[in-house]
Each structure stands twice: as C-alpha cells, then as structure tokens.
Simulated scan of single mutants.
Amino acid sequence: MTKRQKEILDFIIEYYQKNGYYPTLMEIAKHFNLSAVSTIHEHLQKLEQEGYIKRSGKGKIEIVEKSPKNENSFIFPYYGTISAGKPIAIENQTFEYIDLSDILRCENCYALRVKGNSMIGEFILNDDIIIVENRKEALNGEIVVAVIDGEETTLKKFYNLGNGYIKLVPANPDYEPMIYEADRVEIQGVLKGIVRSFKGLKKGALYDEE
C-alpha cells in the first residue's frame, strides 16, 4: 500500500464513521483536490486487489471487514487500545488493520532465540524470539547483536564512545555495562522486533536465568 492509498483508505474510514455511509468517487477526488477521478479510480482498484475494500457494479465503495486473504500477510484487525483496569468493548466492525509485515517479513532479517534476562528492562524476556536486521553498523542506543573477540555473542544496547571504545549496555541493573576496544566488537545485526508466544511461556520466565 502506497502512502496515497493509505490516505485514501483512512479518508473512506473516517467518512463512514462520521456519516454512516461511504463517500463517492467524486467526494474522494474533491477531498484530495483532484480534478480527474481516474487517479482515484486507479488507487481504489489497487486497494480492492489487496483486499482492503470492495466495490459493487455501480462503483459503490465498502470497507472489507476482515483481513485480506493472503497466505503471506501478517495483517490483523485493529480494535484500538486495551485497559489493564476497566474492561472495554471489542467492536465488531473493523476499520483499521495492523500490518506486521515490516517486522515479520524481511529479506535482510533473521531470527534468534534469547537466553538470559539481561535485557528485561527493554521487555525482552528469556526464550523470546527476536527479529534481527542484518546490519554491520548501528546508531547509539540501538539494541544490537554483537560478537566479542569473534567468539562470544550478546544482545545489548550499543554506544560508540568516540574514543576507540564501544560500550554495550544491558537493560537489567543486575548486570554491568561492558566496555571494549572497538576492534574487539563486531556488529552482526540490529533488533527489529520481538515475537513472543504465550502458548509455551513458562511461569516466571521474566526471571529465568541463563
């Protein structure tokens, strides 16, 4: 989905929520200050092909209330926020989707399983699966997969101290930051996302030791 297509989809959703019915092709074109409806028509065709909307023979637009049927998609209905206090109602009508493709489908990424609890302050738990972007350089503050002396691999926050030294910082007060000469540290990737399944999560996993 392009940026313009996302803007059009958002407008259709907002229009429906406000008016109780969907906008016409002309109304969409007018909203985006376009004199030619053919451009809007092309964007709507793409949205329909991707399963976000459907149109009748008369061109009537309607939002598809379920995730597009795509075996390779990671798109889930988005129902808003949830409170840890009072319960909230889950609406039956879906107007938005959360697309996790950027995290879970990445040509330059790989997965690792975390062992240990040195990064619990960043909500990375023992036995989590992390998605790592294959990169050899990192910005200060990014969480990286680093290899020390070509042998020991660790997951830590990265800081280039600018004086020929690298600092790797855990997210757990029980662990001390580690400082190494820069040539001893090789960056193998930068954290992109976390995948956690509660199906097999062990009780007390937050505190499991390595």
Rank of each mutant, 00 (worst) to 15 (best):
L44S: 07
Y22H: 07
K115A: 11
K58E: 12
V185C: 11
S101D: 15
T2W: 09
T39G: 02
G189M: 02
E133Q: 13
E65Q: 15
M1G: 01
D102P: 01
L100R: 05
N117L: 01
S197M: 01
C109P: 02
H31L: 01
A138T: 04
I130R: 01
L112Q: 09
Y15N: 13
T153I: 09
I98Y: 13
L9M: 09
E71D: 07
I12L: 06
F76S: 06
E96N: 10
I53G: 07
K60M: 13
G57W: 14
E137P: 02
I75P: 06
G116H: 03
Y175M: 02
E176T: 01
F76L: 08
K192D: 06
G116D: 13
N160M: 08
I63V: 15
E27H: 06
L44Q: 08
M119K: 08
K18E: 12
E65N: 15
E151Q: 14
Y22I: 00
E107G: 12
I40W: 05
A182M: 02
G80I: 10
K6I: 10
Y78L: 04
F11Y: 15
N70M: 12
V185Q: 07
S38N: 14
S38R: 09
G164A: 08
N134R: 15
K46F: 03
V185A: 08
I129T: 08
V169S: 06
P173M: 07
N72D: 13
K156M: 09
L47Q: 02
I13V: 15
I12N: 03
A205P: 02
E91R: 09
F198I: 05
F123G: 09
T154Y: 11
L100E: 11
Y15E: 10
H43V: 00
L47S: 04
G150R: 10
K136A: 14
Y21F: 12
L155W: 08
K46E: 13
A29C: 05
E181C: 04
C106E: 01
K69L: 13
A182F: 05
F123M: 10
E14C: 05
V64H: 04
H31R: 15
E7Y: 10
D102R: 14
Y175L: 03
M119I: 05
V37L: 08
Y180L: 10
E96D: 06
E27V: 11
R4D: 14
E71P: 00
R184P: 05
N33S: 12
Y21R: 08
E62Q: 14
F76Q: 00
L125P: 00
K192N: 12
S67I: 04
Y97K: 01
Y52S: 01
I120M: 01
I131H: 08
L125M: 10
N70H: 07
Q93E: 14
Y79C: 06
V114N: 00
Y165L: 11
E186R: 11
V190K: 12
A29Q: 01
C109D: 05
E186V: 00
T2P: 03
E91S: 15
K6Y: 11
L44F: 07
S118P: 13
S73P: 00
I120F: 00
P173A: 09
G51K: 09
I120S: 00
P170W: 02
M119F: 08
I28P: 05
G193E: 00
Q93V: 14
F158C: 11
A171S: 14
